[in-house]
Design a protein around this nucleic acid. Structure first.
Lengths: 122, 122
DNA sequence: GCAAATAAGTTTGTAGAACAAACTATACCG
DNA sequence: CGGTATAGTTTGTTCTACAAACTTATTTGC
């Protein structure tokens, strides 16, 4: 467990390592946690509604329950979403909310991508 | 080798399959081949310069030679780039070029992402 | 002129994940 | 009760990105 899971850092042109040349990335780093399509969908939903239950996300994203569940877990572990488990009547209900950290990550991701995509004029 | 590698298709609300609910995605589909950060970098480079040799891409992206090589292979298999191997003096040189299909894929990806990200106002 | 470094790649091994399918647990329905 | 629906979680498999090791050829050093 030596590599934590923040955004992928660019390699600054510093001293040599591995292969003939240097490893990973450029520019301003893409957060893989946000980048993943399924998660991006979930995060985008949460970003605009700011609070949603499990079933809502299921419907909105069209993902399977299993996938929503595991992706939400990852986002929770990363501190990007807050999970609140309760009941509505007799049925369980899980409410998801973006943390401030999560919102920041999404904003940052959006900006990074906009920059990258901005360079691609027709 | 049963699953070809075009863009990930959204599940149209059609008849049931797997899990309690339905599987993958929403909206207009994200092409994973383009989406992958390393490849996105390569494609973005090629998109703007329209022709580049292996070493140039290496330098521009900061990726390792191994990664450039394998990613380029995938892009070639997908028909997104055209690979031309030759020599400059005595040294080998590989020239990469986006195919029209590749350019279209990048444009499409850009549009999809812009749409997705567009919904995320501060 | 032969070793060692450098250049331009490719191939291989492995660790990490995304996804689907199977499962748990409870509630309602007849 | 037996079956189906709801709300999730856990498990298993397959895929794949990345780094490291390997080619093959070419300069450069001595």
């Amino acid at each position: 467990m030596s590599q934590v899971n923040g955004p992928v850092r660019p390699s600054d042109a510093g001293s040599g390592e591995s292969d003939t040349r240097r490893s990973t990335q450029a520019g301003t780093a893409i957060d893989k946690l946000v980048h993943e399509p399924a998660r991006l969908l979930l995060l985008a939903c949460l970003y605009v509604v700011d609070a949603a239950d499990f079933v809502f996300l299921l419907r909105q994203t069209g993902l399977t329950a299993g996938n929503v569940s595991s992706h939400v877990s990852k986002l929770e572990e990363a501190g990007y979403v807050n999970v609140e488990k309760g009941f509505v009547g007799k049925r369980p209900q899980t409410i998801l909310r973006l943390t401030e950290q999560g919102r920041a990550a999404v904003r940052s991701y959006r900006d990074t991508m906009n920059q990258l995509l901005g360079s691609l004029e027709d």
